[in-house]
Simulated scan of single mutants.
Amino acid sequence: MFGRNNIGIMILGTIFLLLLASCTGGDSTTEPIVEALVPTNLNLDITIVGSDTNNPNGDGSGLIQCTATATNAVRYGFKIGNEAEQESTNGIFDYKFTSTGENSHVVSVFAYSSTGNMISAFKTITVYVSDETGLVWADEFDSDGAVLTSNWFSEEVPPENGSWYNGEQQHYTSRTDNAYVSNGTLKIVAKKENYTAYNSTKNYTSARLNSKFTFTYGRIEVRAKLPGGGGTWPAIWTLGSDITTVGWPSCGEIDIMEHVGNNVGEVSSAIHTPSSFGNTVNKGIIEIPDTTTEFHVYAVDWTADKMDFYVDDTLFYTYNPASKNSDTWPFNKDQFILLNIAMGGTLGGTINPNFTEDTMEIDYVRVYQ
């Protein structure tokens, strides 16, 4: 026989079981645990088109073909140097380099799983790109001394009552103090000094070189290291040869490279035409952090259809107006090249009071057609 105590214990036990059942009933749900899936066995194969025993770095086309495979990968991403990652679902990726000569490049691949996990690998390759379009004009700056007057004209006369446009603060000179060649490079030097010319005294001097060579269409490459002093405004650009008859901006302006010492590392390219000029909407920007400490190749491919702007092998801006007319495309006739450092002005900004001098160093200027 059970006593009262045993009956009480049974009742309490029953109540506990009912409460436990209510807390763990069928209405509750538990999220499934998804186990991370990590790709493995990543392999990257790169074929340089035309590579053989005699031409280990390719046939000059600059083409490479990449194939990546990995266990548990559902997609891949490829990067050339510091360019943006480009997606490939099948692990196949083709690329064309454009900088002429033999150059080393880092090719990276990223393999992603269905759960978003990633592994990566990279290879460094050397690719040869021939001068297949034809080198038609160049200055390699291999003769020490003054700038070659057969190639360049030093523009000195300020157009606005003793001053240059854009509120710039320099006088341009033809002195070797401001432009000279040594050890295989051209140096354009901006200096802080009082200098009087054309009934005007300025606190800074520099140089502005215009090429005597003019051309229509082609690829312009300039390998340069830029100044970084606050207030410097170096530029590599072109103007229409008919500027003296039609004026600016009707002549057209192609800014291949502009840089501001107050914002080191930001490189821009721009187009000025009657449709948009000055603070133009036609502009591209790229970040190159070591632009003042390392040489880079600044280039534009100018055709009858469009203009592509590059730093090294990175395409970062294309100008290709849908309607091409005299307002948007005055680029069907000759242009000449300009190299200069301006000081201050609308883009150069405030000049560092401690500025004394800074240099744009140019390894070469080349034009291909």
Rank of each mutant, 00 (worst) to 15 (best):
S211F: 00
I220C: 04
G167E: 02
M1I: 11
S130Q: 06
C66F: 03
I48Y: 00
V34Q: 14
Y317N: 05
A207L: 06
T100F: 12
W233M: 09
D131Y: 02
T280M: 06
V106F: 05
T196I: 06
N203F: 04
I286A: 06
I64N: 00
N54D: 10
V157Y: 01
N90I: 10
K187L: 13
D290C: 03
L19C: 00
V109T: 11
A70I: 05
G91M: 03
Y180R: 14
V127D: 14
G116D: 02
F295C: 05
G162Q: 11
D313M: 11
G348S: 07
P321M: 02
G162M: 12
G8Q: 15
L226F: 05
K96E: 14
G240Q: 11
S174T: 12
Y95H: 11
G50K: 07
L19Q: 02
G50S: 07
Y310D: 00
F316A: 02
N43P: 07
L239K: 01
A146T: 10
G278N: 03
T205M: 05
D144K: 08
D334E: 13
V260C: 12
V222Q: 03
S276Q: 04
K192C: 03
K79M: 09
T244E: 13
D305H: 10
G13T: 08
T89F: 15
L42H: 00
S99M: 14
E221C: 10
S250L: 01
M10I: 15
G134K: 01
D59I: 06
I92L: 15
N6S: 15
S104M: 09
E193P: 01
N166C: 10
T173I: 11
A84K: 11
A121Q: 04
R4S: 08
